[in-house]
Computed example of a mutant assay.
Amino acid sequence: MGLVTEILALPAAPFRGVGWVLDKVVQAAEQEYYDPGPVQEKLADLERAREEGRVSDEEFDEQEELLLRRLEEIKAYQLRRAGSNGA
């Protein structure tokens, strides 16, 4: 019975393959987008820029706020993913 099902489903194989590839692309994009490393690196660069006088305190505060919000978004995403995988 399994062999017959596989043979009958064979014409749909290209569509399943495309779906699998799209799923992998989405997963890779999410991993890159929700990687905290680059955001933490930008925070460190911003701190160095402030210490070196290349960024004003006001500009530092604005950029730091944006980066910290981004880190919060990443953390929330990771918690949601962990919760959905564990449920």
Rank of each mutant, 00 (worst) to 15 (best):
Q31E: 08
E6Q: 07
R16G: 13
A44H: 10
P14Q: 04
A9E: 08
E62W: 11
V25W: 12
Y34F: 15
L10V: 03
Q40H: 05
Q63A: 08
L66H: 05
I74E: 02
R50Q: 15
R70H: 14
L79I: 11
K42L: 14
G19I: 01
I7P: 00
L67S: 10
E64Q: 15
A12I: 12
A29F: 13
L71V: 07
R50S: 13
Y34P: 02
D61R: 15
D23A: 08
V26P: 00
A28Q: 06
L79A: 11
G19P: 00
L79C: 00
L46C: 05
Y33W: 13
V25M: 13
Y34L: 05
E58D: 08
E51F: 10
L79N: 09
E6I: 04
V21D: 00
Q27L: 08
L8G: 01
P38I: 07
W20F: 10
A9W: 03
D61V: 07
E65I: 05
R69M: 07
R16H: 10
V39L: 06
E32L: 11
L79R: 15
G53C: 10
Q31W: 03
G86K: 10
G17T: 03
L3I: 11
V25Y: 10
V4T: 06
K75E: 15
G37N: 04
D45I: 01
D61N: 13
Q63F: 04
K24S: 04
G37A: 13
P11V: 01
D61P: 01
S84M: 10
L71A: 08
E73Y: 05
L3Y: 07
E65D: 12
D57V: 03
E47M: 11
E72A: 11
E52Y: 13
L68G: 03
R48Y: 14
A9N: 12
Y33F: 14
A28H: 08
L43N: 09
E65N: 09
V25D: 01
L10Q: 11
E64T: 04
V4I: 12
P11C: 05
L46W: 03
V18H: 04
Y33P: 00
D61I: 06
F15A: 12
V18A: 11
F15H: 05
Q27E: 07
G83W: 10
E32S: 11
R80W: 05
G83T: 07
K75G: 02
G19V: 02
W20D: 09
S84C: 01
L66E: 13
L68Y: 07
V55G: 00
E32V: 09
L22H: 04
A28M: 04
V4L: 13
Y33L: 12
A87M: 09
R48K: 14
V55A: 01
L46M: 09
A12P: 00
E51W: 10
P11Q: 02
V21Q: 07
E58I: 15
E58Q: 09
V26T: 02
Y77N: 05
E62A: 10
P36G: 06
A29P: 00
Q63R: 13
A13C: 04
P11A: 03
W20R: 03
V25I: 14
E58C: 04
V26G: 02
G17S: 06
P11I: 07
A29L: 12
P38D: 08
R16I: 13
I74S: 04
G37I: 08
Q63W: 12
G83Y: 06
L3R: 11
L46H: 04
M1A: 08
G17L: 02
R54Y: 13
I74R: 01
G86P: 00
Y33K: 07
Q31C: 03
